[in-house]
């Protein structure tokens, strides 16, 4: 009787130990055991992608507290280079100045592309004369020299109406503006100043949608949401006119008006399991999540390449 009881007791203990072991071994493979804080800050352009990833990461690793700020690419790098954040969202590559501060503070980092952002050139649906624009024509319209000189559609291509052209674009503080100015007008040239500028892209949408002689540029996602009010213009960089779309942006045939957007990881990715896990999760799941929030994913090979680059970094 007593022996029986002892045996029972032993079995119970043994099974308890086994359960303990098995749950332990499960945990090491499972992100749900991870905990800690991951601090992310930077570009508001990249924010929706990172927010989506953080939201999904919370499902697999509920104890990791991921927070995302929107200080802008420059503000984000400032914190990143002081070691205040683990990951920085960026809509442009890091500048030499910023990289230098990182070096001074012994912060090594890795740039990872996570998506493409296409810039759309937009006209009013009633505009029936523009079929496409070449990069040279865009440059002619937007170059600083065009101010007070290029005022009419007829000056851009022969046969276009002798009507005033009304330009709409993001303000000079935005990364979208910087990118457009650089690839269309050249480095450190800027654009003309006499256009309707707004930091709020909805205002630009409204402007072009209500002006037959309007022309504007902004993020492709804003066109996608307002298709019925706007008309997309193809851009010809010398090898034929291309309309921006999922395929043409991701294959980079829609050039030069598509750009990659980035996250920057610092050395905490090597030392801390949860940061490493988060970035791997980011790169593995970016494809679907990027499309969800209106950006254009990289190709599978490109994501594969970024994952390799990251694995190399954390070795």
């Amino acid at each position: 009787m007593i022996k029986q009881k002892i045996l029972n007791f032993k079995i119970v203990i043994l099974s308890l130990i086994l359960i303990g072991c098995s749950s332990n071994s499960n945990n090491t493979n499972n992100s749900s055991a991870l905990s800690g804080d991951i601090k992310i800050d930077g570009s508001s352009t990249v924010y929706p992608v990172t927010e989506a990833v953080a939201e999904e990461f919370r499902v697999v690793a509920p104890n990791v507290r991921v927070t995302v700020g929107v200080s802008g690419t420059g503000g984000g790098f400032q914190k990143f280079s002081r070691g205040e954040t683990n990951i920085s969202n960026a809509s442009r590559p890091i500048k030499d100045k910023e990289a230098k501060v990182c070096d001074e503070n012994n912060i090594s980092y890795l740039e990872l592309s996570v998506a493409y952002d296409g810039l759309a050139v937009i006209i009013n649906p009633e505009n029936d004369w523009v079929d496409y624009l070449t990069v040279d024509e865009l440059s002619k319209i937007w170059h600083p020299d065009a101010q007070n000189n290029i005022k009419y559609w007829s000056q851009i291509r022969e046969g276009w109406p002798n009507e005033e052209i009304h330009l709409f674009g993001p303000g000079t503080a935005s990364g979208t503006y910087d990118y457009f100015a650089e690839v269309i007008c050249g480095k450190k040239v800027g654009t003309r100043g006499d256009y309707t500028a707004s930091e709020d892209d909805h205002v630009l949408v409204q402007g072009v949608a209500t002006d037959k002689y309007g022309l504007g540029f902004f993020g492709l996602a804003y066109y996608e949401e307002n298709k019925e009010k706007l008309k997309l213009v193809g851009v010809d960089n010398g090898s034929g006119s291309v309309l921006p779309s999922m395929q043409t942006v991701s294959s980079r045939t829609y050039a030069p008006l598509s750009r990659p957007i980035f996250i920057y990881a610092n050395n905490s990715a090597k030392e801390r399991e949860e940061v490493k896990e988060f970035i791997s999760f980011y790169l593995k799941n970016a494809k679907n999540l990027v499309a969800d929030v209106g950006y254009i994913p990289l190709t599978d090979e490109e994501y594969g390449f970024e994952i390799e680059k990251f694995n190399e970094f954390i070795k």
Binding site: D41, S44, Y47, T50, E51, A54, E55, R58, R65, V66, T67, V68, G69, V70, S71, K79
Partner: peptide, 19 residues
């Protein structure tokens, strides 16, 4: 925003030192 208030915070503050 300058002080560092965040945009995505998946938890409510539990004390004055929380983000």
């Amino acid at each position: 925003i300058v002080v560092g208030a965040l945009a995505y915070v998946p938890f409510t503050p539990k004390g004055p030192m929380d983000e």
